[in-house]
């Protein structure tokens, strides 16, 4: 691999890493993540926020959900109040995406609610698995890596 290519690669990689660092440091000012919202809830009180969590308990009488917020590590429990959504099929373990008004550190009034059943959510990842051998097969059927030039070359029958 010649020097021009290495320089170009380093240039592109440095821009990418720069963008990633910028996003990482600045995203809470534009699109705050769940953990930041809960750590600074005074700042977000009575404002509309988006939170993602896992259903821990369903109260169909009061139409509320108890959801665990934050995946890594769990940041605690938040009481989610939903007034419009039907919770008849909601079960503990389901994934929830909620957009609504944060009314206290432990409660949110949902404006929009997106509930994914546990099996349906897991199925996304299961469905993704066959893509790995499919993509590998398609790629290596057409291309091979030349260890001398450090480049991918088209296989002869696909030339």
């Amino acid at each position: 691999m010649n020097h021009h290519r290495i320089l170009l690669g380093c240039f592109l990689l440095s821009i990418l890493i720069g963008l990633m660092i910028y996003y990482s440091f600045d995203h809470n000012n534009h699109d705050p993540d769940t953990e930041y919202i809960l750590d600074h809830y005074e700042q977000f009180n009575n404002t509309k926020v988006t939170l993602i969590g896992e259903v821990k308990d369903v109260d169909r009488t009061n139409n509320t959900l108890l959801i665990q917020i934050g995946q890594s590590p769990p940041k605690g429990i938040i009481l989610l109040i939903s007034t419009t959504e039907n919770l008849n099929t909601t079960q503990p373990g389901d994934n929830v995406e909620v957009y609504g008004v944060l009314t206290s550190k432990n409660s949110i009034t949902a404006e929009k609610l997106l509930i994914s059943e546990r099996w349906a959510y897991s199925l996304i990842f299961i469905r993704s698995l066959p893509a790995i051998p499919f993509v590998m097969y398609l790629f290596f059927r057409t291309w091979r890596f030349n260890r001398n030039t450090y480049r991918f070359e088209r296989r002869e029958k696909h030339g």
Partner: peptide, 29 residues
């Protein structure tokens, strides 16, 4: 159980994906 501080999120933006495509393309003739 580690917080990545959304470091990888730009990969799911057009600019981030295009940069990755550029880096990959360098390894082709």
């Amino acid at each position: 159980n580690l917080n990545d501080h959304q470091f990888f999120e730009p990969l799911h933006t057009p600019i981030g994906a295009v940069l990755i495509a550029g880096i990959i393309a360098i390894s082709f003739n």
